[in-house]
């Protein structure tokens, strides 16, 4: 699904990722944990295609050179990132945005575009599952949404777009326990042998709800340690400091 080899990324001449390697197979869930400033969000941004980074190394996504693809093509080909800080976009109606996004992606994937009625039925089911108040669909995109509503809106977009590779960038931050459960259920409902997840988080608690196959510890732009789910628990006890010393 995803093979990252010796990936380096700098912004404003500051090197953030320093030879990062990772391989994700279809159906796997990988968690990346690490202290502030270790490069977690940079990794997510580089994979999604955000401008402004000088990038070296190789990223193969479904066998293709991901770094060469424009942002929208990455999304159309099934890459989805749930933003740590979803943007508030004034004037853009949430419902219109979701419909345009879905139909653009469906068109590229060779599927029939949904008419308003089909879309309405789809969105009704999805919002109900995620316990999202349908009213937010008629509001401006993320404008005035609570932290929880913004994150749920990201998960809503994820479930609608049915991506192949999902990156969750600190989706748990700012969520209360109830919202975290709902978000996790949304993610778990999408678990599939053909779909992979890359979960970026500070804390172990999200991993109580979404069980990863692998946990990687990112320190100073590189993976310092890889393990199974228990590694997260261990980290919670000893903190990142010790890992940095070892790394």
């Amino acid at each position: 699904m995803l093979q990252i080899t010796n990936l380096s990324a700098s912004i404003d001449n500051k090197k953030i990722l320093k030879g990062f390697n990772l391989k994700i197979k279809p159906g796997e869930i990988h968690a990346i944990m690490g202290p502030n400033g270790s490069g977690k969000s940079t990794l997510a941004n580089v994979l999604t295609g955000k401008n402004g980074y000088q990038v070296e190394g190789q990223v193969l996504y479904q066998g293709k050179n991901l770094l060469k693809l424009p942002i929208e093509e990455r999304a159309q080909k099934g890459l989805f990132m749930a933003f740590q800080y979803p943007l508030e976009i004034a004037g853009v109606n949430t419902n219109n945005f979701l419909k345009t996004s879905l139909n653009t992606v469906r068109k590229v994937r060779g599927l029939k575009e949904l008419d308003s009625l089909d879309f309405l039925n789809l969105i009704k089911t999805k919002t109900k599952n995620l316990k999202i108040d349908e009213k937010i669909l008629n509001r401006q995109l993320n404008v005035g949404f609570s932290g929880g509503e913004k994150k749920k809106n990201e998960i809503l977009q994820m479930t609608i777009l049915e991506p192949k590779l999902v990156i969750l960038d600190e989706t748990d931050s700012g969520l209360d326990i109830d919202a975290m459960k709902i978000v996790s259920e949304g993610v778990n409902s999408l678990r599939d042998k053909d779909r992979s997840f890359l979960i970026i988080t500070h804390y172990q608690r999200l991993l109580d709800y979404i069980k990863p196959d692998f946990v990687h510890v990112l320190v100073d732009g590189k993976i310092a340690k890889t393990g199974c789910g228990e590694l997260a628990l261990e980290l919670e006890k000893i903190g990142y400091g010790k890992m940095e010393a070892e790394g």
């Binding site: 999304a75 976009i89 219109n96 945005f97 996004s101 653009t104 977009q157």
Partner: peptide, 20 residues
């Protein structure tokens, strides 16, 4: 960037922002 990461082309994203 946010709109494009949801599959919209730059042109579509611009139009959506202008309209909004």
């Amino acid at each position: 960037f946010y709109l494009m990461s949801r599959g919209l082309s730059k042109k579509q994203a611009n139009k959506m922002l202008i309209e909004g």
